[in-house]
Design a protein around this nucleic acid. Structure first.
Lengths: 189, 189
DNA sequence: TTGCAATCTTGAACCAGATCAATTTCCAGC
DNA sequence: GCTGGAAATTGATCTGGTTCAAGATTGCAA
C-alpha cells in the first residue's frame, strides 16, 4: 500500500487527508504463485498495481501456443486496457508468477477517487501516457531487432528479469520459440 | 477544426464559450504530400490531430531499411509519446502521405487548455487510453499472426487503407518485405 | 528422499520469409 | 504526351528461426 502511495507521490503531492481517503478506499490483496487474476474470455474488471511480486499477461493462439505480451513487477500497472475501458470480454489472461501483493483498481473506484482527489487524475493520465509510450517503443523494438538482437538487448537492459521469469515465457515475450531461446543463451553466456 | 470539435464532443460536451476558447487557441495547418512534420533526431514537440489526410510515423534501422510503426487518418492523434512527454530526441520521423490538414498540440497548449476547460482533461485521458489499448492489440496481432494472416486480417478489416498507402509502407508496417507483400497480394486477389 | 512433472537442452530436418537481381508498371513533372 | 525515377512484380537462392523428437535438468509435492 505504501508502495502505491510512494509511487503516486513521485508524480503529484498528496495531503494527509487525501492519503487517508486512498487508504480507506484501496486495499492490497495477496495471491499465491500461479494465481489467475484474469481468465481469457472474462471481462477485465481491474487495473492491477504490483506492490510486490510479478504478473504477466498472455494469450493463446488457436494452435494452443501461449504468448506473453507483458510482464509487470513492482510499481507497474497492468491490465487489458481495451477490456478494462469497454467492459468487453478479454482475449488475455493475467496471472502471478510469484507470490504477489497487488492493488486492484476498478474504473468505478478510479472515477470515485478522481472526484475526491482531483490531482489523482493527473497521476492516472501520466501513468497511461507512460504505458502508451512504452508500448510504442516495444512495437519499435519488435520491428527493429532480430531475435538475437532482442535477446541481447533484453539481457543487457533487464538482467534482473531473467532470474524471475521462466525461459519459455521470456522466449514468447520476445517472439520466438523456447528452443531458439536456449540456443541464443548458449551462444552468449 | 470542426473535425476536432466534433471529435471532442463525441466524448464530452462543450459550452459555446469553451468552443470559442478552443477556436482561439488552436489552428489547423495545411501541408503538402510528403511533408516532414518530425525528423528523426529532433524532439517531438507536438501531438498531431489529423483533420484531413494521412500521416505515418516511421524509423530507420542501421542497415538503412525503413519501418512504419503507425499510420493516422482523419480523427486520429499521432505522436512519439515518449519524446513528446520527456522532450528528449525522437528516433522517429512523421510525414504526410497526402496533402493534409492537421492540428498540432504542444504539451504547454495542452496544459493551458486543460486548465481553461477542465472537461478537456477527460477527453485527453480517454484518447490516450484508447491509443494505449490499440497499441496493446497491435502487439498481440504481431505476436499472434503469421505474415499471411496479418495481411488477410488487415485487408479484410481496413480495405480503405490499402488504397491510400503505398504497398512497401504497408509491408513494413505489417513486418515483412515489399517482395513478400507482393506475393501475398497475388495469392489472394 | 524420492518420484514425477515441468522446464531446458540438443540435434536434424524443414519452411516462412528475406535477399538479390532483373524486369515491368506506374506516375509526377516538364 | 514524353520521360526518368520510384514502386511493384517475379524468379532464384539463401537463412533465421521453427518444428519434431529425444534426452537431461530442475523443482516441488508427498
Amino acid at each position: 500500500m505504501d508502495q502505491l502511495l510512494a509511487h503516486i507521490q513521485q508524480y503529484i503531492s498528496l495531503s494527509g487527508e487525501e492519503i487517508t481517503i486512498l487508504k480507506r478506499t484501496l486495499s492490497t490483496t495477496t495471491f499465491d504463485k500461479n494465481h489467475k487474476l484474469l481468465e481469457a474470455g472474462e471481462v477485465c474488471h481491474f487495473n492491477y498495481f504490483v506492490c510486490k511480486g510479478c504478473l504477466r499477461m498472455y494469450f493463446f493462439k488457436e494452435n494452443g501456443t501461449e504468448h506473453t505480451t507483458q510482464f509487470a513487477i513492482e510499481n507497474w500497472w497492468l491490465s487489458d486496457y481495451l477490456s478494462y475501458l469497454t467492459q468487453l470480454k478479454s482475449p488475455f489472461s493475467i496471472e502471478t508468477l510469484e507470490p504477489s501483493e497487488v492493488i486492484a483498481l476498478s474504473p468505478d473506484t478510479s472515477d470515485l477517487l478522481a472526484t475526491e482527489i482531483p490531482q489523482l487524475s493527473k497521476y492516472f493520465a501520466l501513468i497511461t501516457q507512460r504505458a502508451y509510450a512504452a508500448a510504442q517503443m516495444r512495437i519499435k523494438f519488435l520491428q527493429e531487432f532480430s531475435g538475437e538482437e532482442l535477446f541481447n538487448h533484453f539481457t543487457s537492459h533487464f538482467p534482473e528479469f531473467l532470474q524471475r521469469v521462466p525461459q519459455y515465457m521470456m522466449a514468447s515475450y520476445l517472439g520466438f520459440s523456447p528452443e531458439y531461446y536456449s540456443r541464443l543463451r548458449k551462444k552468449t553466456p
